[in-house]
Design a protein around this nucleic acid. Sequence first.
RNA 1: UCCUCGGUAGCUCAAUGGCAGAGCAUGCGGCUGUUAACCGCAGGGUUGUUGGUUCGAGUCCAACCCGAGGAGCCA
Length: 475
Amino acid sequence: MRIAGTQHVWRSIPRDRGTICAIIFHSETPMKQEFRIENIANYVGQQVTLKGWLYASTRKGKLMFLRLRDGTGICQGVAYQPDLGEELFETLKRLGQESSLIVTGTVKENGRAPGIPGGYEIGIEAVEVLQNVEEYPITPKEHGVDFLMDNRHLWLRSSKQWAVMRVRATIKRAIIDFFDNNGFINIDTPIITPAAAEGTSTLFEVDYFEEKAYLAQTGQLYNEADIMAFGKVYCFGPTFRAEKSKTRRHLAEFWMVEPEMAFFDLEDLMDFEEQFVSYVVQTTIEKRRAELEFLERDLTVLENISAPFPRISYDEAIERIHALREATDDPELKEQLAIEWGDDFGAPHETELTKQFDKPVFVYGYPSQVKAFYMEPWPGRPEVCKSVDLLAPEGYGEIIGGSERMSDPDLLIAAIERHELPLEHYQWYVDLRQYGSVPHSGFGLGLERTVAWICGIEHIRQTIAFPRTLNRMNP
RNA sequence: UCCUCGGUAGCUCAAUGGCAGAGCAUGCGGCUGUUAACCGCAGGGUUGUUGGUUCGAGUCCAACCCGAGGAGCCA
């Protein structure tokens, strides 16, 4: 992990008296200072060189406005024919959208100038055209989803998609920082696994040297082994679900961060989760305000996200949904909200429930029958488990699922048998309860759902560069 | 897997069963403060596929293909 403004350079040293060593060099200026649009405010009055692409252009006679991208932002370039000369101005006039170019000019402050961040423009003095583009498919007009997804490799250049990916990267970084700064160690868990880890979802099958194997749906079970060695761990990687699900919050391949903590009970887990989510949201607002504002996200809603979050039991949630169902006059909603104790929540239940809160809400103590086999039973209520989901507000639904894990080996074996899972594949997992078992808890947070919520965007497919959905694997 | 909607120019969409259209994009021309600019001219079509009804099908019927929204399932 690189820290801002620093760089670690590994230089291997030749063998010297039988030892191999390495020296870490530390420097304040990792790279030659290059102009970047995101830092344009620091360059007012200076001549800069912008290496990038033409995002859009418009002109009015001998005056021309070019919207330029360099990967870090968008800024306006202004070209005036009498200053530039006829030949260069003609060249600019003929540039198509997404032409690659190197522009030299002087930065000026101007409130009228659009961009991210806006308010600055470059008075163009010279241009080197690397490639002039004839006809770029994505025009600055409306397009359909199918077309845009077919052109996802180009769509990523569009400013909204670009802004979402910038926010995503920051969220991911904030997640990693939070764990690294709170005593966690990052351990990678396997992607190829011999059996369904949770026994609850459909998996992608792969051929593993002529033996059946599956793409991982979670790293959690391995995390449980890891905490007995390291105390607190997290894994953060791709996760695969083969459900033929077709909704705005489902991907076949998505990224999940899963922390696991030894000597942690359900109460500790909720305390920890609300600190974690608050940190991620506040850090993202701080570092990506321009992008979130460009996405027209209501930041007052996000600024309110701080611990503590409301906590309700599954029993209370069911009562609230029953009351909502009584109160509504909409027959369709009445139908959708039908639920009995013991059922899992569907999307409409979560949506209506979370509308009652302006922060994420914990729902704890789900019926064991709707949850994975490894969750600790509630003391005195064996039909309920020590699970907790965190539901995001504004209808974004479950972003975290977690629980206290079973710590008793006999209970665990019984649960594995009850779920008809192959015990031989779980023997190592049972071992963890036989050699120094401790109470422990953990959770999984879906990165894309979190990005969708923080960015305030409709569909999860726009929160990952190249989404894998039921009907799409290309590009 | 189920329900609903859609597929016409590169893109977004029109077209009572009767000549295949517009805007954007592209090319050419005009304009000194544009924000998806504006004005004029030009080129651009196997109407998703197959079959059927009809004097005549983009339009009606059937099957299939592809996509979208939702449900279930899931984080």
